[in-house]
């Protein structure tokens, strides 16, 4: 910094003089000007503190127009940025929501399919309105073809789930006579009285059993006694475990 007013060289003597001058100037001299100077200094101290305080609590109201404009544009910019962020987040929220809905929909459809297939394949218990066909055969006169006919008639009448004794009837179920005069259903022997449970429209099923020349008539001719019991709720609770086919392989089809 250039100091054009301070060209005179100073030495130790001058420094002593300077301190003495300062002391002299500082010594109390009750003159009017000195008093005024003190008042001014007092006002200066007060003003400094007031300004410092003011600066520390300053709000927007003391700012100049251009500063306010700058702050306003800053705030505008921030607002734009934040609303853009809000838009982004909302769109991703929508995306996630729709994805979740789609997944739930797919899961519901899959569950429905699983239930239907479970009932078809015999891996899920089923209950509903249906009939209970009871064939009393103490002398073991009934052969497997009667049960097979009964099952086929029930299927033809729209039975959705059938159980013979404790064996679920599915696509692979077979009937055979055993040597002891009994009947084997898919390898497990059932003994009289034969109880066939079928879920479906009860009246249709019962009608199919009782038509002339139908199952009940055939049973009676064979020497057994068949009775049909219409129930509001029949439980088909025998289960099969699904075995993976050993030879059959699905042929890939073009899914729509």
């Amino acid at each position: 910094m250039s100091e054009p007013h301070d060209s005179t060289p100073t030495g130790p003597r001058d420094a002593r003089h300077a301190w003495a001058r300062l002391r002299r100037a500082g010594s109390p001299r009750p003159s009017r000007s000195n008093l005024l100077a003190m008042l001014l200094a007092l006002a200066l101290g007060f003003a400094i503190i007031a300004q410092v305080r003011q600066t520390s609590i300053q709000g927007l109201e003391t700012l100049r127009e251009d500063e306010l404009v700058r702050i306003l544009s800053d705030v505008d910019q921030d607002g734009d940025q934040l609303s853009g962020e809000v838009r982004d987040l909302q769109s991703s929220l929508e995306l996630l929501k729709s994805r979740t809905t789609g997944e739930q929909e797919a899961q519901r459809a899959a569950q429905e399919r699983l239930d239907a297939l479970g009932i078809l394949a015999g891996t899920a218990p089923a209950k509903g309105p249906g009939i209970l066909l009871r064939i009393e055969d103490p002398q073991r006169l009934v052969r497997q073809n009667l049960l097979l006919d009964a099952v086929q008639e029930l299927r033809a009448a729209g039975a959705e789930a059938i159980q013979v004794g404790d064996v679920r009837v599915v696509a692979s179920t077979w009937f055979a006579d055993t040597d002891g005069g009994g009947i084997s259903v898919s390898g497990s022997e059932v003994t009289p009285p034969y109880v066939i449970r079928a879920i479906g429209d009860p009246n249709t099923l019962a009608g199919a059993m009782q038509i002339p020349g139908g199952v009940t008539a055939t049973a009676r001719r064979a020497g057994a006694e068949a009775s049909v019991d219409i129930r509001d709720e029949v439980e088909v609770d025998a289960l099969l475990s699904v075995t993976t086919p050993q030879y059959a392989r699905p042929v890939p089809t073009s899914t729509p």
Binding site: L35, L42, G45, I48
Partner: peptide, 22 residues
């Protein structure tokens, strides 16, 4: 000395009164 005293007193008064600038 007296002006310096005045300055100190002014600062003190300002601290005590907590003035707000009009």
């Amino acid at each position: 000395m007296i002006p310096a005293l005045g300055l100190a007193v002014g600062v003190l008064v300002g601290l005590l009164l907590q003035p707000t600038v009009p």
